[in-house]
Design a protein around this nucleic acid. Sequence first.
DNA 1: ATAATCCCTCCAGTGACTAGAGGTTCAAGA
DNA 2: TCTTGAACCTCTAGTCACTGGAGGGATTAT
Lengths: 137, 137
Amino acid sequence: MFSIGEVSKRTGVKVPTIRYYEEMGLISPSERSDGNQRRYSRGDVERLTFIRHARDLGFEIDRIRELIALSHHPQAPCDGADRIASAHLAEVRQKIDQLKRLEAELERIVSHCGGHTVEDCYVIRALSDHGLCEHEH
Amino acid sequence: MFSIGEVSKRTGVKVPTIRYYEEMGLISPSERSDGNQRRYSRGDVERLTFIRHARDLGFEIDRIRELIALSHHPQAPCDGADRIASAHLAEVRQKIDQLKRLEAELERIVSHCGGHTVEDCYVIRALSDHGLCEHEH
DNA sequence: ATAATCCCTCCAGTGACTAGAGGTTCAAGA
DNA sequence: TCTTGAACCTCTAGTCACTGGAGGGATTAT
């Protein structure tokens, strides 16, 4: 049995975050000490590692809750997990595209900043006048 | 003079958001009607367009406040605006890199999902076992 | 005059934490 | 066994950029 501090060290998840995940219904300690402190099993640590990993990959708490539920039915078909991950991948790709468009716009704005005063600074002008933009956004 | 609803239509910024920006100190209406309703000038509308545009490009409220302050000193050197925009561009690029790494990882996880049951589903296994990952994250 | 629409303020909720106050428990050393 | 200090507990509030709703007043068109 591990204290919350030990679990935090093992998983890299901060102590208040572990408590937050508990409140969100992702994990709860297997036991409590006589003095009401959380005590985690090895299984709990594994589960928190799973959560951490999924968060690192950008899965939302709700999606993680679903993935945990799925993992509790090892004989169920895995379409569910696959669908969640694929949907997430699509979101990530969309986000990348969006950011690339921003990048291009910002690049253009920054590189054009030829002026020496704010008055003729392209950065300020481009922000004031949408007409200077190449794409809609 | 425009009502908040008209301004909203002209700029595409939602009414509660305009009020929120006011609370944040980005704009305030030039006047109030006798009945205490907000009345905006043409200049106010331009300013809100500036804000909207900057937000679309991902600038934070605080950065926008700085840009507005700069735009009020047209004779000042424009290094400030340039620096803010360049820093933002760097952030955007970093975010893109990060998301690309996620994309690669998720691609790998999803494409490997060969199993039919959760038990041997790569998605679940990859999340449980960090060792299956290619990169640190 | 009245109805419909708009506007006002204030409060609460979102997501995923993070930080602090004020108090209790635990583990290790004397 | 006692003490000390670190770690723990709960509860509340703050972050960012909004969004939505309640309950009531203002404006506008007919």
